[in-house]
Design a binder for these strands. Structure first.
Length: 740
DNA sequence: GATCGATGATTTTTT
DNA sequence: ATCATCGATC
């Protein structure tokens, strides 16, 4: 067991070997948090705890898999019955085992955000709520908030103050009924119903609270009220709760996460042992200093002092670009530059606040033929053709799933319109028969629909019945999916429907089939319900493949918990980071600051912070100010550059606007508007050229930069031209252009 | 019931 | 700017 602890520092070792009872580990960024958690599990196992007695919660499935692997490596056992997973996945597992106790169907479907919205659309219609007046996404969010605070519709009603809230309460009630009629639960239910199960069924609570002798939680700062309640229920017998987190990295407040869970942990669990990990093993000194200085501006925090023994490293590049297109072009340059310095593409990650920003970056990288991978965002499973096929599978697994039925009953076209679908669903409800099962009551259908429509519906339901028999007979998921694709002639449909995009879509279909095969092999003949559950819960964040040699693009939220040698943060602008919707409250800005802190602390050795002077919003350009957070980073840690707008940029789109923008008075105005910051101190005019860059000269043609000297008007660049050898160029006189 | 074109909302982050 | 939804027309 000494081996286990050997490579740990004293604080880490103390945490790993903490006595039984509640333990809180406050772990700064890069301080070996995951390591402590995994080693703790291994240490417990070496001290007589069985794998089946350990329950470990992680924030993502990716983290869960990683942890399973690491623990397995430490203890040399790969098939131990660990319960390591997200709150949602673990909830689903418990609920499936005891669904009957809550009046749930064992094969319940799991509805994601898109399914929820579709269902809400129906609920709005049933309740005569005007979707123009009361937004569906807002209703969804309200319901989610209620569920995360453990409020039933009745409790929500007593809290509702405005007419709008009361309407949403009505919708909540109708939604919950409709959801159960579809034999479905939503994401929030996976936790909420687990809590209800443990609260109402003493025997079940004793079962799990007794079975798990140790409950561990990663990323505790991002747990919500419900999750805390669940942890308390599960540890009610033994009190062995081991949680790890960093209050400075709490970035899910909008999802109900409460830093208070961490700040007030000792009140919830008296007798807590507290450990602090403050030595950072990830970042070079300059980056760590920048992050520390930034986060010191937050008031609500436990406070810590991260330090490192690592070298200082290079200054942080803080760069202004004219617009988002230029910014994207610069990202390509950075990738090239870093590669010329011997870095792998896979070492470089580009981050942004909103998913919408990824598109321009992707375009630029694609044009430059730089292999790249967008992590998250428009996820594979959100593509239309994939969702359609999954809806076929979902309906096969669960004929009560009205949302899936509505999605595909006329896709491909079967001449079944909205009117027919409404009548079909009404008929199903009236007779309390799942819509998919009405095939057995063709008499009812003929009464409800009229002969022609009934005929078409029956034909479709007949197909569905055949697939259901296949599934019941244990036909493997890949074979079932292949059969469905063949039966509905999906490939032909895709080709005819939209020939331009058909190829890509067919590739996606093939990819889904691959996934089904992989599942079948890995799960050793898993069931259809298991396949669907895995897809519902496992976002393709897990698709982060190591060593693929691709530049990775992701939101800052997605990057949480990861680290990369080189990080480029784009869009460091006010109203984007901090985002406009969070800028009006102090708490909002503090969460955005934590988000920026997460971004900075992902970087090991090299950090670029980019911002554009203007950016398109809803089609039209709007001016952007540098993020206020940039001003909170000490100037001496940065190398700030303002690309020379004069000659580097394409001709101004509106000459007067550009002239205005960069006039002395415009800059003075911006200074006056922005908070007093170090930002304006030295906006040096630094060269846009760097060694190794490919450039074009009017008379010498293409070449490679070998040396850059001076700045501004004295800039002097040495270029090795392909046809004319080595020359000294003064860009002030002889235009030299970077090649993108 | 399907198709085309106009209209209006949309952008915060995810299990 | 782009996408989804809605309405009018076939």
């Amino acid at each position: 067991m000494t081996d286990l602890l050997e490579s740990l520092n004293s604080a880490q070792r103390a945490a790993v070997t903490a006595p039984d009872g509640p333990v809180l580990v406050v772990a700064g960024a890069g301080s070996g948090k995951t390591r402590v958690l995994t080693t703790r599990v291994a240490w417990l196992l070496e001290h007589g705890v069985y794998p089946s007695q350990v329950l470990a919660y992680t924030f993502t499935n990716r983290a869960a898999n990683q942890m399973k692997e690491r623990v397995a490596t430490l203890v040399g056992e790969t098939n131990a019955p660990f319960w390591i997973g997200t709150f949602h996945a673990t909830g689903a597992r418990i609920l499936r085992s005891h669904a009957d106790r809550l009046g749930l169907a064992r094969d319940f479907a799991i509805y994601d955000t898109d399914d929820q919205k579709r269902l809400l659309k129906n609920v709005f219609a049933d309740l005569n709520v005007d979707a123009k007046q009361f937004a569906i996404p807002a209703a969804r969010a309200a319901i989610s908030t209620w569920k995360n605070e453990d409020d039933s519709p009745e409790q929500a009603r007593s809290k509702a103050k405005t007419f709008v809230e009361e309407t949403y309460v009505k919708v909540y009630e109708g939604y919950q009924k409709a959801l159960r009629a579809c034999k479905a639960v939503d994401f929030d239910d996976l936790i909420l119903e687990t809590v209800h199960l443990l609260e109402t069924c003493d025997d079940v609570r004793d079962l799990y609270a007794g079975k798990f002798r140790h409950v561990l939680v990663d990323e505790f700062q991002d747990t919500n009220a419900l999750q805390l309640l669940l942890v308390r229920l599960l540890s009610s017998v033994h009190g062995n709760v081991f949680v790890v987190g960093d209050d400075d990295q709490s970035i899910y407040g909008w999802r109900g996460a409460r830093v208070e869970n961490m700040l007030e942990f000792e009140q919830h669990f008296p007798g807590t042992h507290l450990y602090r990990l403050e030595q950072n093993y990830r970042s070079v000194g300059i980056i760590l200093d920048a992050a520390n200085a930034l986060i010191a501006n937050n008031k609500r925090r436990k406070g810590k002092n991260l330090w490192t023994e690592a070298a200082r490293g290079d200054p942080i590049s803080v760069e202004e670009h004219l617009d988002a297109e230029d910014e994207a072009a610069r990202v390509v340059e950075i990738v090239r530059r870093e590669q010329s310095l011997g870095r792998e593409r896979g070492d470089i990650t580009v981050m942004y606040r909103t998913n919408a920003q990824s598109r321009l970056l992707e375009d630029a990288l694609r044009r430059a033929r730089v292999p790249h991978q967008v992590v998250g965002s428009v996820q594979f499973y959100e593509r239309r053709e994939i969702r359609d096929l999954l809806a076929y599978l979902k309906l096969t697994a669960n004929p009560a799933d009205e949302v899936s039925l509505q999605r595909i009953i006329n896709q491909p076209k079967r001449k079944i319109g909205d009117t027919t679908v409404s009548r079909l669903l009404a008929c199903a409800r009236e007779h309390a028969i799942a819509a998919g099962d009405l095939v057995m009551r063709s008499d009812l259908l003929r009464d409800a629909l009229g002969p022609a429509a009934a005929q078409r519906v029956l034909q479709f339901l007949g197909q569905l019945a055949a697939w259901r028999r296949d599934a019941a007979d244990g036909k493997p998921v890949p074979a079932l999916l292949e059969r469905i694709i063949a039966d509905i002639q999906y490939e032909a449909f895709l080709r005819d429907d939209e020939p331009e995009t058909a190829l890509g879509r067919l590739e996606n279909v093939a990819e889904l089939l691959n996934g089904a095969h992989a599942f079948h092999e890995a799960a050793d003949g898993g069931t259809l319900v298991q396949f669907l559950e895995q897809i519902a819960l496992v976002a393709d964040q897990d698709a982060i493949r190591d060593g693929e040699g691709a530049v990775r693009l992701m939101t800052v939220h997605t990057a949480k918990g990861l680290e990369f040698p080189v990080v480029v943060v784009t869009g460091c602008e006010d109203d984007l980071l901090p985002h406009a919707t969070s800028s009006d409250t102090a708490a909002g800005v503090e969460e955005e600051r934590r988000l920026f802190y997460v971004a900075l602390t992902r970087a090991r050795t090299r950090l670029y912070l980019l911002h554009a002077a203007r950016r398109r919003r809803y089609g039209a350009y709007e001016d952007s100010l540098p993020s206020r957070f940039l001003g909170e980073i000490p100037a001496e840690l940065c190398e700030r550059r303002q690309i020379d707008h004069g000659w580097r940029l394409p001709p101004p789109r509106t000459a007067s606007a550009d002239a205005d923008r960069y006039s002395a008075s415009a800059i003075a105005g911006r200074r006056a508007r922005s908070p007093a910051s170090s930002w304006d101190r030295d906006v040096a005019q630094v060269s846009p050229f760097y060694e190794g860059q490919t450039v074009v000269h009017a008379s010498f043609g293409a070449g490679t930069v070998v040396r850059v000297e001076g700045a501004g008007d004295d800039l002097e660049v040495t270029v090795e031209f392909l046809d004319h050898g080595r020359k000294h160029i003064l860009p002030r006189f002889a235009p030299l252009h970077p090649v993108d």
